[in-house]
Design a protein around this nucleic acid. Structure first.
Lengths: 325, 325
DNA sequence: TTGTAAGCGTTATCAG
DNA sequence: CTGATAACGCTTACAA
């Protein structure tokens, strides 16, 4: 189908392949006006489309970057992704998105396949379970930026938010409203944001002189959450406030509450870590901790871009503050 | 960084490039156990990663497919995308997603760049404004599948839903509930689903013997929507029901209603075309028309896969029924 | 069973 | 200003 090659164009235009190549790369400087026109015509006539694969092979640069998202069903992820894509678009990079589904095996596959496809760099929301692989990339000087989650013992560019601090502030706020029995619901503590948010929660309680009650801390995967919530709400002293550690937890909790007829605002105060797209449609008084996703995405893309263009700056961790809404 | 090439492996293993190539392509049939092992070791030792770019150039097949989404902020789009990716993943295809932002210019760019990158096929949520380009692809026999939106005068594989019919049913349902003043809110009528939904709306009214009141039909872009809604709700006879033609319209409408203190269910009945992720969290009685996104995505991927593998079947349009929830 | 050599469609280096 | 010619890293007949 795409059988027209540079050689064909050259033949029709009556010039050589190299001249056509020059033309395509806009190096007209020393090019005769007449040849330029002839080539233009030939391209038009044949419907020629350059083959980027061939070019990439030669240039060892694909102008593609890969983004490996831990879980695309987080609204936060799609927001960041959008920002990354925007940046790439204005910098002549093409962004390829993959969804690791929070599965280290899949993450590994994607990293390997993207590197095999010679993408120029990678932005990763790491599962945190592939440290050897991360280390290898970094030590090979391959351009990488980590987003959302910290990776231990690795000197690498990262873009994260102040999970512990924001959580702590939010919980403190709820305490000031008079709540003492505050539950904390989170998915399995496998990645840094979850851990940091829990830390922030504990800190706020401790600072306020409230004892930490492990019955109020629920760590469960989304499918198991319902059962755990049942337990939580059959306690003698029920929580009057609940902190959902991210949007998916929020949804699970919301579903549960609805089912049980527990009224937000009246029976329970809810705080959620994450931007929720439909939040303004809910008339319940829910607090949200909003991460500056757009800026974070942009920063990550920028950092990657710099690495790709060999601007040698030492790896740094950028912490963006979150906002309580 | 990825300087290890097949030649290096061959040298270390003491065999020739072609033997290594055989090994990599799992054609061990006639390969000595000893050579196999030597190659294995060499690969391990050097940390060799094959270069897909080079392979693609030779094979004229990249094992990548492109998906051009009209607007990724529609939840429906991400759902379909997920399904497409799942299918691709199980069929050794890599999916690249691009967001055309409902902009024909961007769409054109992406189509061209993806083809230049030699992707094996394209799944497009068409803007509908690039008919020449679509036509060209089809006539060149390039594998394409259109999703969500119909393209006129083009014999091509498409996966859509029964927009007019589903809308008509939903509106009819609202009429049966006793509503007569039903508004219809839609973004600019540039693509077939919007047009078809409007058609369905009109049909339901006509069938019920209700006169179509153009004051109740709002066609506006999201930023303009608020103003138009102001007008709608300053009419003497206000609508008692409102049909939002998709999720983004729903959000705009929801925001407006909230601002105005118009209560869902009480003051206004709402029907939305599209699956909304947080719908079960809203305690207002909203009806949704749910498209079978997962099945549609899978079907689209399947159709593309068949074309890529040259299973010659004539183009067909697959219509999936939507469900009212 | 393994090696040789000719491409795939570009770009880059030098001559002319 | 333009044109040979050699890469880029891999696959694939065909030979050995």
């Amino acid at each position: 189908m795409n059988k027209v090659t540079m050689a064909d164009v050259a033949k029709v235009a009556g010039v050589s392949k190299s001249t056509v190549s020059q033309y395509l790369n806009k190096r007209y400087e020393y090019m005769g006006e007449k040849t330029k026109l002839k080539i233009e015509e030939a391209i038009e006539e044949l419907g020629y489309q350059p083959n980027f694969i061939a070019r990439s092979l030669k240039q060892k640069r694909t102008s593609m970057v890969g983004i490996i998202v831990a879980n695309i069903t987080h609204f936060f992820s799609t927001e960041i992704s959008r920002a990354i894509e925007d940046f790439c678009h204005t910098h002549d990079l093409h962004a390829i998105f993959c969804n690791a589904d929070d599965d280290p095996e899949k993450e590994k596959n994607y990293i390997e396949m993207l590197r095999a496809k010679q993408v120029d760099g990678l932005i990763i929301f790491p599962t945190g379970q592939n440290n050897d692989l991360y280390k290898k990339m970094v030590s090979q000087g391959y351009p990488v930026v980590f987003v959302d989650r910290k990776v231990e013992n690795l000197d690498v560019f990262s873009v994260i938010t102040d999970n512990a601090h924001a959580t702590s502030m939010a919980v403190q706020h709820v305490i000031e409203k008079g709540h003492r029995n505050i539950a904390f619901v989170v998915q399995p503590l496998k990645v840094s944001p979850r851990i940091d948010r829990l830390t922030g929660y504990k800190k706020a309680l401790t600072d306020a002189g409230i004892e930490i009650n492990s019955d109020y801390i629920i760590e469960a995967s989304i499918p198991d959450m319902k059962n755990k919530l049942e337990q939580l709400f059959s306690l003698e002293v029920k929580p009057t406030a609940l902190f959902a550690a991210n949007d998916r937890v929020f949804m699970a909790v919301g579903e549960f509450l609805k089912e049980k007829g527990i009224k937000l605002g009246k029976d329970l105060e809810l705080i959620v870590f994450d931007n929720i797209p439909f939040s303004h449609l809910l008339d319940s008084p829910i607090s949200f901790i909003e991460q500056p996703a757009a800026e974070m995405g942009k920063k990550a893309a920028e950092l990657l871009f710099q690495q790709i263009n060999k601007e040698d700056t030492p790896p740094e961790v950028f912490v963006f503050p979150s906002r309580i809404v």
